[in-house]
Design a protein around this nucleic acid. Structure first.
Length: 603
RNA sequence: GCGCCCGUAGCUCAACUGGAUAGAGCGUCUGGCUACGGACCAGAAGGUUAGGGGUUCAAAUCCUCUCGGGCGUACCA
């Protein structure tokens, strides 16, 4: 965003230089390719190596039109452009160079640093805020655990990605509704009820209730392997629940209650927030209307005894609204939920942060909606088609296996968090034994390591759950970012004087500073990338880049091999460098917040 | 069987969706004026991008086949 202005200037200058250098071809081809500022702007890239400048423009694809060699083209154009830039005698904001098929440009560091640091220091944590979301509502559904199952690491990704997306959209000015939609309905409850009747007791609800319920669930599946009739019993039991049988309903309520307690504890540790929570059962009385609506336009039919919507797509099985026995299914509730949310919020976008394994399910549900809206011939403004997205993510794998509650193959998230926190405590005891807020900071770091472990891989890819990696505090980790933040805070404490943007930015023109400052300038673009791609990973990797750039600056050595200290006897230099320090601290702090991590002042 | 996704350093991941010498971290090895905080920094080693063929100025990226893995495939969610 901050660099946009320079990119535009680059594009205009380069296009003009092309026109000047190849007037005949320009006349013949018209305002296209290298002769068009907007085409040049589209072709702009970031150089592989920051030493090559900040803007790069490859010219290969124009060689056949220009009928010339790459190095000749880049050299003549760069020279002409430089001449034009320096024409009015003042210091040019851009300096172009040519290199093997690329026209590169470096931006006058002073122009960037002045603008960037001033913005960061005055806007503080509101730096890179945006208004693109103003007046728009975005829904984000995430976490959505199941009753009577505990939080495993499998639920970690949806919870963390969703929580982060919620914060990212807020920063961009959207009104965001973070929704937790727990699974509190369905045949699984038939199974739980049967299991409880057979092997449960009052003791089940005593201590560690959720764990006891999981044991029952696992046992049910083990037994059902041997005895098919258990599944039939479960179907009957769920039907009783649907019919409102008081005894069964009471049992269901108790199971819900203990699960809620469990989640609240985990959300509190993670620092995850929601704006709205309702379970699947909330939609029970809203499904019939949806079915009627679908039926009215003739989309439903009976097949093999079940009520379906034929999706007219050989690749997708039909959407089952009702089973043979009349019980509703997952997709029936999701359709009701889709419509409920659309009618209530008229959202700009509605996101479902749910694993890849359900991508067919979402394709089916969205196809049903599209068919319905088409059949009802709704005006475009009344249609949600295109606004609803399945934000899928890869599996959390454990060794070679995937997690499965049914097989009892699961790691409890709370155990992971507790171990991470305990490790943080050990580290702090050894490195900073006098730390005042020992407990709180230990939690920040342990939890930060766990959260970051899920955000350091692109959303769509599977992520391995490896204890050693999750509990690592070195390298590309959350604690590394937190450490950098704490160190920046420490510098401000040592400096002890007010930090302002009223400094001589000319003093920050060395390579290391330049890279840090241009990273700061990118923050806004990175947030937009994360939002557009529904992936906080962009921010994770950006913060690592920024921290690494800062740490290089911090530990830079001068010719004699001494550390080139930030705070020195040179007051002007120190003031300028501290302006940079505080800017980096602000951006790391805000970036960590967007990811859902806390940033300690000391650790 | 059919559909979708994936295969990059010993390990975990990048590569701006077709661009420059395929980059980081971990691990291994070497180094860092008596630390403005060493949870850091500098350097070294490590690659036929699973394999073959094709498309073009240019392929890890696109098309095709082979091999290997994951997920889904109507009455679970």
């Amino acid at each position: 965003m901050i660099l946009d202005k320079f990119k535009e200037q680059f594009a205009q200058t380069v296009a003009a230089a092309f026109c000047g250098a190849y007037p005949d071809i320009a006349k013949a081809t018209g305002d296209h390719g290298p002769f068009s500022a907007s085409d040049v702007l589209k072709g702009i890239e970031k150089p592989k190596d920051p030493k090559m400048g900040s803007i790069a423009f490859p010219i290969f694809k124009y060689l056949s039109v220009l009928k010339s060699k790459p190095d000749v083209v880049t050299r003549t154009v760069a020279e002409a452009a430089n001449k034009a830039l320096g024409a009015n005698g003042s210091r040019p904001a851009l300096t172009l160079t040519s290199a093997s098929g690329y026209i590169n440009a470096s931006i006058d560091p002073l122009a960037v640093s002045q603008r960037t640091l001033t913005e960061v220091l005055t806007q503080k944590n509101h730096f890179a805020d945006s208004s693109i979301g103003e007046g728009k509502i975005n829904l984000v559904e995430y976490s959505s655990p199941n009753i009577a199952k505990t939080f495993g690491v499998g639920h970690l990704r949806t919870t963390i990605i969703g929580n982060s997306l919620r914060r990212i959209y807020k920063k961009l000015g959207y009104q965001v509704i973070g929704i937790n939609y727990p699974g509190d309905w369905g045949t699984q409850f038939g199974k739980m009820i049967v299991a409880f009747r057979k092997w449960g007791s009052e003791e089940t609800f005593k201590n560690k209730a959720v764990f006891n319920l999981i044991d029952l669930y696992v046992k049910f599946h083990a037994e059902a392997e041997k005895d098919e009739s258990l599944n039939e019993e479960a179907r009957v039991a769920f039907k009783q629940l649907e019919d409102g049988d008081p005894e069964v309903t009471a049992l269901w309520e108790r199971m819900k209650e203990v699960s809620f307690e469990e989640w609240d504890r985990v959300y509190a540790i993670l620092g995850v927030e929601f704006d709205l929570m309702y379970g699947e059962s909330f939609l029970n009385d809203k499904m019939e209307a949806v079915i009627e609506r679908l039926t009215r336009v003739g989309l439903t039919s009976i097949s093999r005894g079940a009520l379906i919507v034929d999706l007219k797509d050989p690749q997708l099985p039909p959407a089952l609204l009702k089973r043979q026995d009349g019980a509703t299914l997952y997709i029936t509730r999701d359709l009701a939920g889709l419509i409920y949310r659309w009618e209530k919020y008229r959202f700009h976008e509605s996101l479902y942060v749910v694993g890849v394994s359900q991508s067919d399910h979402f394709k089916q549900a969205l196809k049903v909606i599209a068919m319905l809206e088409e059949a009802e011939n709704l005006p475009a403004s009344e249609r949600m088609t295109g606004k609803v997205k399945h934000v899928d993510f890869g599996w959390v794998k454990f060794g070679e296996k995937t997690m499965s509650t049914r097989q009892g193959n699961i790691i409890f998230l709370e155990d992971v968090l507790n171990q991470a926190i305990e490790l943080a405590r050990t580290k702090i005891r050894e490195k900073n034994p006098d730390l005042k807020q020992f407990d709180e900071v230990s939690r920040m770091i342990g939890v930060g390591a766990v959260i970051f472990s899920q955000l350091s891989v692109r959303r769509q890819k599977d992520v391995n759950f490896d204890w050693d990696e999750v509990l690592s505090f070195e390298g590309e980790t959350g604690p590394y970012l937190q450490y950098t933040h704490a160190r920046l805070c420490s510098l401000e404490r040592v400096y002890g004087k007010p930090i302002t943007a009223d400094v001589d930015f000319e003093l920050l023109d060395r390579e290391e500073e330049r890279i840090v400052i241009e990273s700061l300038a990118e923050f806004g673009d990175v947030i937009l990338d994360a939002a557009r791609n529904y992936d906080p990973w962009y921010i994770s990797t950006y913060l690592l880049r920024l921290s690494s750039a800062f740490n290089k600056f911090y530990q830079r050595k001068d010719a004699s091999g001494r550390i080139d200290k930030i705070i020195s006897d040179n007051a002007d230099l120190s003031a300028a460098r501290m302006a940079l320090v505080q800017s980096v601290r602000i951006v790391i702090n805000e970036g960590l917040h967007l990811l859902g991590l806390r940033a300690p002042d000391e650790m």
